[in-house]
Design a protein around this nucleic acid. Structure first.
Lengths: 361, 361
DNA sequence: CGGTAGCAGGCAATCGTCTGCATTGGTGGA
DNA sequence: TCCACCAATGCAGACGATTGCCTGCTACCG
């Protein structure tokens, strides 16, 4: 029952031209090589027959698959869907598609997916998973495969990348807490092998110093991964060590959720007993109780920009490597308040907290 | 700098055989046509050269792209990432990849993505977006393109599908509420053009009758989409109409979140003033306050099963069409309680509520 | 009127792999 | 001894589109 697929030859026959001419007429790049009326004739024939170019054959000849690989840790992490959509939408506009690969933070899986992508002849890669000094980078370079990094920086290779200004973001978080009157501020750091974790840790130290506060080593715990479980573990560790901190700046929202869970378990409440700031402003994070104060950055745009950068490299732009930093933004919600404000649960809604100008109350 | 890609011809030359022989030796299906030692020689040559078959050329010849299209409403809806991962993982195990398309519920976008998928010669489609009587189904059938439906049923075509038993799920929700003593139970229905919305609505009516309760038309509102905004609108409508209901069974979790928002706005609390039940058990829904009581089904497995069904059709299995229903499960959390239990905020944590045997308290 | 520039379009090779058919060499049976 | 047959491999033609090169043809200039 399946209609035999209509090929370029069929179109050419109907328009009474050679397939080569039909090809040129159909391709916007080469249309001008063909007389206007001939081109029209071909276009009409194509439309009449419902011609759809065979992308596979085209790819074989042009060595362009019009597809790119996207390696992320896990699609289930709510941070990624908006980014992926950004990538897909920008790519689609250029006639490209994305092949998504989830590494689950496993280097073996990452390598396997990388091989698979290469076998499928992707025209480029967006990597959100590389750790510092990842061998994949060298391999991509050797294969002349364009690569763009997302939320990661590579120190040993100079590669295009898109990420948020992590230092600045965490500085905003610390400034917010210090402004509320907190002095004993803890940090739940992310894994230090990924640039995100490292940059936020460094930013935290710098921000504390800038505010004349001491970054007590006892108040810094490092998570093994950006997960709720790890956030909970670290928060518990903090509470066991010494209860003297009144606020926590977590390296991301997942870790912050872990804090919530740890507080719940011992019957403490946020922000009365402990203020918590996250990082990322994940979707739905504003639906928690209390809604999380966090650092927002434009997820979708990270995706579109990464795709844009990659498309430029694929198109052969050889200019200087672009390293893009997107500006973070502090979103004040209900999870932060002045220290020791027991019994003052904040109302719902994303009311913007006022920066107290002095030590009022 | 790019190494010239190694082709089958290179491998053949190194193994001193004809490319055809090399091809046969490399393909498990045809290996037995080649003498054992020759095959070994080819395999070694391939390994030594780091040969990677060109999937594009293979596809052109065999007319199999080893890729399938997946059309979903929106990757940002947290329901889908786990499902998509299920699909991807199962496909990957069979050497296939998924091309994801987000329709945003827009029929034009859906059609465009469908065309794009066809142009890329996907071997099959997983559709989570079709509405009743979607023309895409007829078109796929005409093109001999295998299709599997997800969370949807088509009444006019008999197609393989995977979905949750919606009627049974909503019945469990109603039974739970009735068991707590609720009699005035409202329903925020989903869009009736999609089978999910329709099935849950019907299930609600049937369940109410089965419990000897009246499904008051005043207590049924239909949302235009499965979104938070619509959930909020519908909940407000319910409260405006008549405050006599003590519980709401929402057609999905997004609508339930909308209820939460509506309650917040007028200062009512859940479950003291209103019990709410959702449907889907989306990721992170257990982190809300109160944690949402909802109907769970195995998202990831929906994905793997759908992929499995599709792979079977692609492989040419022509047996009877399989329609798979996965069993739902009631997850009792903090958003439901006995009617009129004002002043008894439930503690945190996913404690399993006890079914009261009689009207205690 | 001859020469040439330049446009339109045809020809054929190519991308890398698969596969139906032909060819080779060896074996067993009559 | 000859023939038929089988196993193992070579041969060559697709698959469908792109593109460098070449051929006609027209038109313009001197």
């Amino acid at each position: 029952m399946a209609d035999p697929p209509v090929t370029l030859k069929d179109v050419a026959a109907r328009a009474r031209v050679h397939p080569a001419t039909a090809s040129r007429a159909l391709n916007p790049e080469t249309r001008l090589l063909v007389r206007e009326d001939t081109a029209q004739r071909v276009l009409e024939a194509a439309a009449a027959l419902g011609y759809r170019p065979n992308t596979v054959a085209r790819s074989l000849r042009t060595r362009r698959s019009h597809s790119v690989g996207v390696l992320i840790p896990d699609l289930n992490n709510p941070l990624f869907p908006p980014i992926v959509r950004g990538i897909e939408d920008r790519l689609a506009a250029a006639g490209y598609v994305a092949l998504i690969g989830n590494t689950d933070g496993d280097a073996d899986r990452e390598r396997m997916l990388f091989e698979q992508m290469r076998a499928r002849h992707v025209d480029g890669l967006v990597l959100a998973t590389v750790h510092l000094g990842d061998p994949l980078l060298a391999e991509s370079a050797r294969a002349d495969l364009p690569v763009v990094l997302m939320n990661r920086l590579a120190h040993d290779y100079s590669l295009p990348s898109v990420s948020v200004d992590n230092e600045r973001g965490i500085r905003m978080a610390v400034a917010h807490l210090a402004g509320l009157g907190h002095t004993r501020i803890a940090h739940i750091a992310g894994p230090q092998e990924v640039s995100t974790g490292l940059a936020r840790y460094r930013g935290f130290i710098a921000a504390m110093e800038a505010h004349g506060l001491t970054a007590d080593p006892d108040l810094i715990v490092t998570a093994k991964s950006f997960s709720i479980d790890e956030g909970m573990r670290c928060a518990q560790l903090l509470m066991e060590r010494d209860a003297s901190c009144t606020a926590v700046a977590a390296a991301n929202d997942m870790l912050a959720i872990g804090c919530y869970a740890a507080l719940d378990e011992v019957g403490l409440s946020c922000p009365a007993d402990l203020s918590v700031v996250g990082f990322n402003d994940m979707p739905f994070i504003d639906r928690l109780r209390p809604p999380l104060t966090t650092i927002r950055f434009p997820h979708y745009q990270v995706g579109t920009e990464a795709a844009q950068l990659l498309l430029e490299r694929i198109a052969g732009h050889t200019g200087p490597v672009k390293v893009l930093f997107l500006a973070p933004e502090l979103v004040v919600r209900g999870s932060t308040g002045p220290p020791g404000a027991t019994g003052t649960p904040p109302g719902p809604g994303p009311g913007r907290a006022v920066q107290p100008s002095g030590p009022d109350r």
